[in-house]
């Protein structure tokens, strides 16, 4: 089974609310959405972001939009006004998630 970067099967956008980042992950085609649901679990996303995210990861499903929404708690070094990070608002976390690899049939 080939293993590909999420970049090849999805697109994404991310932003912030306080110290919590959100990442919307959208399948490039509807038939790819079940792969995201099956493989891009909250647990895998937490492991993927272990260096940046110090709280829990929540996942929500939007099947009609072929999309998942992730909340990465405590992932912005205290949040926009406090953070010492270059990406204090998690704007690039969308692409960071797209680095994850999944199996495609």
């Amino acid at each position: 089974m080939p293993r590909v970067c999420l970049l090849e099967v999805a697109h994404a956008r991310s932003g912030d609310k306080g110290d919590c980042a959100n990442i919307g992950l959208i399948a490039l085609r509807p038939e790819l959405y079940p792969l995201l649901v099956e493989q891009v679990t909250a647990g895998r996303v937490k492991e993927h972001f272990r260096e940046l995210c110090h709280g829990p990861v929540e996942r929500f499903e939007l099947p009609k939009l072929h999309a998942l929404n992730f909340l990465l708690h405590q992932s912005l070094d205290g949040g926009g006004t406090v953070s010492l990070r270059t990406d204090a608002q998690g704007k690039t976390y969308s692409a960071a998630l797209l680095r994850m690899e999944i199996d495609v049939p």
Partner: peptide, 16 residues
């Protein structure tokens, strides 16, 4: 549709 979808998901929590 893809672009508007990205924006709908932007800075939201529980989408329901």
């Amino acid at each position: 549709v893809p672009g508007v979808t990205e924006q709908l998901l932007y800075e939201i929590g529980d989408p329901s």
